[in-house]
Design a protein around this nucleic acid. Structure first.
Lengths: 193, 193
DNA sequence: CTGCCCATGTAAATGGTTACATGATTGA
DNA sequence: TCAATCATGTAACCATTTACATGGGCAG
């Protein structure tokens, strides 16, 4: 349900097209919600159908026409309602941890490779979030209060990524320090009976 | 795709029924993957249909019969294949951060209430993860290596939750320290034209 | 003339949540 | 007699991903 609210939320900042929104999701909202363009276009249609946003076609020469969307009063109400009520912890879906949990089927090098690959992705993303070029959108905030809140969402992203990177390093070290058990990956003991 | 692999993975540890698996997801795999019983039953059916697991009916007196599942050789192969290849960072979907991002529509008390509620949920979950009663399943590991890996997945959960709790406190403090702007929540400026 | 940016969508499939549905046994 | 535990599932819906599909303008 919150994709709708994220879109509605950003439309209160500025009327935008689906194409624009996709860029906002890729650059600014990326660290707490992601969406594909097909999802965005369908959600915008639904908002208009439900009377929570209006659509305005903007004719352009030299480039394709676009449709700008804006929340209606009903849209603002719905958004305010959703924003004020508490929502649970994000549900986790963490493929790397599934891999680690069942890594008895892998040999030591494969386990280390998975962790190192994951660490590299984390480091790359932390680098991007720390890059001032990535902070531009924060200066579009309408008040110091909003600027603080936007910066906080980024801070959350950086803090959790760094905690994970730290965990990756700790885990690689601990794994290497395990008493050498000449580990042989488990095999299916097929047809034991 | 990884629900299938999480199930397959746990079935290599021990043949289990759908009902048992649900409990495993609730207690042991909970910090990196969640699933409802309806999802589990459907996935088990699919595994059998696809020849990746076998089903065995166990007749019980005094309680309902149950169906135990075990991976086939094809299941082991599929699992090994999936475990060895890298999967991207988990895609984030973080409702609280959406709320914070658009909190210009809320007043100060509402923002603090959201953060405090979130912090309380985090603290409660950290407490559960730290509780030794919650660690029982780790001792079922088949090797010291596996024990280390299972403990690491829990460690990941605790570390990221604590990073977030820390962030919550920092954010509440920073928010309260904002220069008092007599904040009035934004209103839709309807019918300006 | 190639490839990127602009700008829009649809279709099909997969994945996930919620609600509906049943029924025996055991312990308080 | 009430609630919990054991044990299974289906149906409807909602959310997400991936692939298909189009087409003009502009810069190198």
């Amino acid at each position: 349900m919150s994709l709708k609210h994220a879109i509605l939320g950003y439309l209160t900042v500025q009327p935008l097209s689906g194409y624009d929104l996709k860029k906002v999701f890729d650059h600014a909202l990326g660290y707490f919600w992601s969406a594909t363009h097909s999802q965005i276009y369908r959600t915008l249609d639904r908002l208009v159908r439900d009377g929570e946003a209006t659509q305005e076609v903007v004719i352009q020469r030299d480039r394709p026409n676009k449709k700008l969307y804006q929340p209606t009063e009903a849209g603002w109400d719905e958004l305010r309602r959703w924003l004020a009520e508490p929502h649970g912890l994000p549900t986790l879906r963490h493929p790397l941890l599934v891999q680690l949990a069942f890594a008895e089927l892998l040999d030591d090098d494969q386990v280390v490779a998975l962790l190192e690959d994951y660490g590299a992705r984390l480091a790359e993303r932390i680098g991007r979030y720390r890059d001032p070029a990535h902070h531009q959108h924060i200066y579009l905030a309408r008040t110091p209060r909003e600027r603080f809140l936007w910066w906080s969402t980024l801070d959350n992203g950086i803090a959790t990524l760094e905690a994970e990177l730290c965990w990756v390093e700790r885990t690689i070290d601990g794994f290497r320090a395990l008493p050498e058990g000449h580990h042989h990956p488990l095999e299916a003991d097929h047809d034991r009976d």
